[in-house]
Write a protein that binds this DNA or RNA. Structure first.
Length: 352
RNA sequence: GGGGGGUUUCCCGAGCGGUCAAAGGGGUCAGACUGUAAAUCUGAUGGCAAUGCCUUCGCAGGUUCGAAUCCUGCACCCCCCA
């Protein structure tokens, strides 16, 4: 319900209990891909700190927890100091207090689950050490923390979080094909780091892949390996197979040769829409409208620009004419048309 | 409670009565180059039935031939004093 101020330049939105529960419900299935919740005594456990914070009275909290936090120490924490140094944004007492909550959570986890180590991104350092300090004062125990550097791209930006290029683990938000493509497109400069960060390939293997990559970067051996490993991890072998098939179809074979079965196989994975056949009547469907329908342009104006600038393709053939209309004559693999905007953004339209 | 500053198109940030759909930068999209790369260069960047029409400058009113720009009220944010 209360956000962590670290890193963020603005106040967080406060979430309602319902929103939080929905978020938690959404996170759990994703974590299941990476953690075992049913591994006997060492199973992963997902807890909600609302369970112990929710009924904690303000006075009790100040007495039992707040008392142990010297404000002068809190003020020296990077997360707090950076916020105070900004003149355009302040820091509310609520957010300032976040550190106490997270520290207390650590103590609770120790009490309830014997948790002794807290791991997180480096922006969590202050919060983690606050928890270690609190545990020592309250329980007289030594707890531990470990952080890793936040992953940024070679140009300093955070990875996979930009507005347009956000990368989600949920296949409903980022399909296996899109997920795979994200990694295939990764900068050379970032491949090394990502292989080490995200895959559990052995050091030798990573070295070998990178060495091979160096011999001919154009083949992007490293990106391919990275994409394959991660897609399999997140979406399973099935997801990887579909992603590779779609990639092969779009970036390999001739579009004209496709069979309906092939297109059906990747239909759900590539941005796509089904349209009634009537749309093709009366001279055909204007490309501009088709681009919008396929989700390749947000508005007709944008679609028109794409076409005018030579970035629109129908079945991989440039369609630079605004008057270009789609007709059944453009069908490939039955009743589908492959649209493309730019070099690599594909969209599929299927007429029913 | 008092005083000051602020809220502009996706973001930052100019504009301070007409020439404003609104400078500049970022981002984004497209083109060239290339390797579905990076860097660089070029163009585009509110919507639409498009030499025009509609919507946008915190919200609601008002002044005016005309407002993002002036006035009033409201909301929210920031700073300082108490």
């Amino acid at each position: 319900m209360i956000g962590d101020p670290s890193g963020k330049s603005e106040e967080r939105n406060l979430l309602s209990v319902e929103q939080l529960r929905a978020n938690i419900a959404g996170i759990e299935p994703q974590l299941r891909r990476f953690l075992q919740f049913d591994a006997g005594p060492n199973s992963a456990v997902l807890v909600n700190n609302y369970d112990w914070m929710g009924r904690f009275g303000y006075l009790e909290f100040l007495r039992d927890v707040g008392k142990h936090f010297p404000v002068n120490v809190m003020l020296t924490k990077d997360s707090v100091r950076s916020r105070l140094e900004r003149t355009d944004a302040g820091l509310s007492y609520t957010e300032f207090s976040y550190m106490l909550l997270q520290a207390y959570d650590f103590v609770q986890l120790f009490d309830q689950h014997g948790c002794e180590v807290q791991v997180g991104g480096s922006d969590q350092w202050g919060n983690i050490t606050a928890g270690i300090d609190l545990a020592r004062r309250l329980r007289g125990v030594q707890l531990y923390g470990m952080t890793c550097p936040l992953l940024t791209k070679s140009d300093g930006q955070k990875m996979g979080k930009s507005e347009a290029g956000a990368l989600w683990l949920d296949p409903a938000k980022t399909s296996p094909y899109q997920f795979y493509q994200y990694w295939i497109n990764l900068d050379d400069a970032d491949v090394d780091t990502c292989l080490r960060f995200f895959t559990d390939l052995a050091e030798d293997e990573i070295r070998r892949v990178l060495a091979e990559h160096e011999t001919d970067r154009g083949r992007r051996t490293a990106q391919r390996r990275l994409a394959a490993e991660l897609t399999r991890l997140v979406h399973g072998g099935e997801g990887l197979a579909i992603a590779e098939r779609a990639t092969e179809i779009f970036f390999g074979a001739e579009i004209g040769e496709l069979t309906d079965a092939q297109l059906r196989g990747i239909f759900a994975d590539v941005p796509s829409r089904e349209l009634p056949r009537e749309n093709l009547q009366g001279g055909g469907l204007p490309v501009v409208e088709a681009l919008v329908a396929a989700g390749l342009a947000k508005s007709k104006g944008e679609a028109r620009r794409t076409v005018t600038q030579g970035g629109a393709y129908v079945n991989n053939r440039r369609a630079a004419d605004l008057d270009r209309r789609l007709t059944p004559g453009d069908f490939v693999g039955g009743a589908a048309i492959v649209l493309r905007s730019g070099k690599k953004k594909y969209g599929l339209l299927r007429f029913v």
